[in-house]
Design a protein around this nucleic acid. Structure first.
Lengths: 215, 215
DNA sequence: ACATTCAATATTGGATCCAAAAAAGGATAT
DNA sequence: ATATCCTTTTTTGGATCCAATATTGAATGT
């Protein structure tokens, strides 16, 4: 098959499963049978087992000895924790990024924001993440960026459920534009404030909706 | 039931390898041969392979397709990034912990600090981590705590190298006592300030020493 | 009818096997 | 002597095999 990753099917399996779980194509709590996945992806169980280990440490899969793997359940009470961590990590990333921001990068982010506003709801998660990451990437901290991306993956699973009900994207657009403006002015305090509010408010709205809707 | 041995050797292997790497018993960059480790730990290669995947996502192991695993190299330039992340994560943890801190927990931390001061240098890393985590655990955020613990593991690899040269532990003791005092007074701003300084200064000293000593 | 026990089944975890890729070593040519 | 090619060895990655554990379901007894 794909020779590009020859010698590394576990990574490919992990990537595919990760996308599927984040996109909600596997239900939370759903058991993940090794042989089923292996057959679906046309490999043996071995790469699947390694992939499941990786996804477990990423927090997307629950792995119980001798019982097997299942999609990590969604717990609305966890949303608060994830968003608290996002505020901490993303404000750090932006703080470190702003002094390094080039106009070209800001323009790139602005174009992504236009795509967000033009795109459909299905693409929102992906484009929204790309917008934020484009700004953060200027900080040049690979480990921090990986951490931010991981938190984004975790929260996207919850966001999917609420995005329609909350008009989440509408609200987000104004804040994104304001953030871009602050970045253009290289106004660090304003940008950090906007970002913190952006994330905090979004997390609060999300958690509120989940807790009322799921009960 | 006998939870200890059966059903999950991969976790045990991961735990042992993790400890070995953090303790510096494997040199940075050293290749990790699957069959060697398997024989040393009395298992087959399979649990070793799964463990290596896990340790790779934790940032302790480098895994190159078809080439094998090696202990993640130490790069002094990375120390700054890790400590920036520690400040963000640990101040968050402490901020959330302080309102929940019981006197019993503070006393427990204080006893750990006494152990730190009494213990030898070899035990410093472990006891120091236990001291901090005891305070943080009151925040009740499992994911955040796991993240903090992971960052601690990463920085301990560097700290090991410099701890003797820097009289790191001496400096640390005063700051720990001051932090305990602030916690006893439930003085959140003071505690957060002390913690931020504690981590930042330690990181700076560590990075400076590494960059001069390694060049 | 219901709970319990025990056999049958399914699924995981670990070991082994095999092929492919990389590394090591040695012969040859310049 | 050195570089290059080719063979041999080592090591990884993936598939398969087997044992141990968990789950299912049926049979039995109350």
């Amino acid at each position: 098959m794909d020779r590009s990753g020859s010698g590394d099917q576990a990574r490919q399996v992990a990537r595919k499963l990760r996308e599927m779980i984040i996109a909600g194509r596997y239900a939370p709590g759903e058991p993940l049978r090794q042989d089923v996945i292996a057959e679906q992806l046309g490999t043996s169980r071995m790469p699947v087992r390694e992939a499941l280990r990786v996804l477990e440490t990423e927090g997307l899969v629950l792995l119980v000895p001798n019982k097997g793997a299942s999609v990590a359940p969604l717990d609305p009470r966890e949303v608060g924790e994830i968003y608290e961590m996002r505020v901490a990590a993303e404000t750090l990333a932006l703080r470190l990024a702003i002094p390094e921001l080039s106009n070209a990068r800001i323009d790139r982010a602005a174009r992504l924001q236009e795509s967000v506003e033009a795109g459909d709801l299905a693409a929102f998660g992906r484009l929204n993440k790309a917008f934020h990451m484009t700004l953060y990437e200027a900080c040049g901290r690979p480990r921090l960026l990986a951490h931010v991306a991981g938190l984004n993956d975790l929260s996207d699973r919850y966001l999917r459920l609420a995005i329609r009900a909350l008009d989440y994207d509408k609200r987000s657009n104004d804040e994104h534009r304001a953030l871009l403006d602050a970045c253009r002015r290289r106004d660090k305090p304003a940008a950090l404030n906007l970002l913190e509010q952006h994330i905090t408010v979004a997390g609060q709205a999300l958690q509120d909706w989940l807790e009322t809707a799921c009960s």
